[in-house]
Nucleic acid binder design. Structure first.
Lengths: 135, 135
DNA sequence: AAAACCATGTCAGATTATCTTACATTTCAT
DNA sequence: ATGAAATGTAAGATAATCTGACATGGTTTT
């Protein structure tokens, strides 16, 4: 009943907050941005501003990384998700779909197979995830 | 499906964002805090961090101010709301209720009548509220 | 009408948070 | 052993925020 619906892609959060929410370091977050996994907005003074969607993505990145997927793999996985997210609207999506497919489909299968095979071995460093967010 | 429930009183927002969301100036927000209408958390470095509840409250403050209610009135109104918010849990609330009532009930009626009478005259400066939040 | 008050604006100086760039380190793949 | 990928870390710069003080325009109160 209080006025605040706050859309999911509204730029709201500073990097410090996102660090706490995701348990990622600033370095990691910036690195993932550098590689196009997220594209946070900026303030007039060039500070990053993250949306809820950005945070969700970062949490997915973290999960996948914990499972041994590398950034290239995550990039492709995000591409696939983009396909399926436009789901129940079937008629004129096929064009956009095909475009993205051409770019990724071939190597996608290869990459996914490759990555997901070794997933679960090694890696998985960050322990039982509940470390101290918000002291 | 994306991981982010974000509780309503989790300290998340910088004052800059809150300014945009509420259309209040930093001065106003700090002044309202100074008078106990909100109590935002702080970072280790003393920066204010606001929760969704803080923002809701600020929006209510803004509304009431636009209607000519002064801070003293808003304070009392918030007190009343606190009563009614613990509603459907009737049995052992009566104690806390009575305490707060003793402090505010008498002058509350007086104040509310007084304030709400002249509400709507003068004041009402901030125009049809949609000015430029997020450039 | 003068004095006091309320709510806000504004300025100044200090401090924190974040930015970019560059180099170091670690781990894994070839 | 070499190289690439992912992250750590340090330095210097800039932006955002903080507190405190004083200024200002209305509103009561005396």
């Amino acid at each position: 009943m209080g006025g605040s619906q706050i859309r999911r892609n509204m730029p709201l959060f500073s990097i410090g907050i996102v660090m706490q929410l995701t348990d990622l370091t600033a370095r990691q977050i910036r690195y993932y941005e550098e590689h196009g996994l997220i594209s946070p907005a900026r303030t007039e003074g060039n500070k990053r501003l993250f949306s809820l969607n950005d945070i969700d993505k970062l949490l997915e990145v973290k999960d996948l990384i914990d499972q041994g997927v590398n950034l290239a793999g995550i990039k492709q996985i995000f591409n696939v998700k983009q396909h399926n997210d436009v789901a129940p609207n079937d008629e004129d999506n096929k064009d956009a779909e095909k475009v993205r497919k051409d770019l990724s489909d071939a190597e996608l299968r290869k990459l996914l197979r490759k990555e997901l095979l070794r997933a679960g071995r090694f890696h998985r460093n960050s322990g039982p995830g509940d470390r101290s967010r918000f002291h």
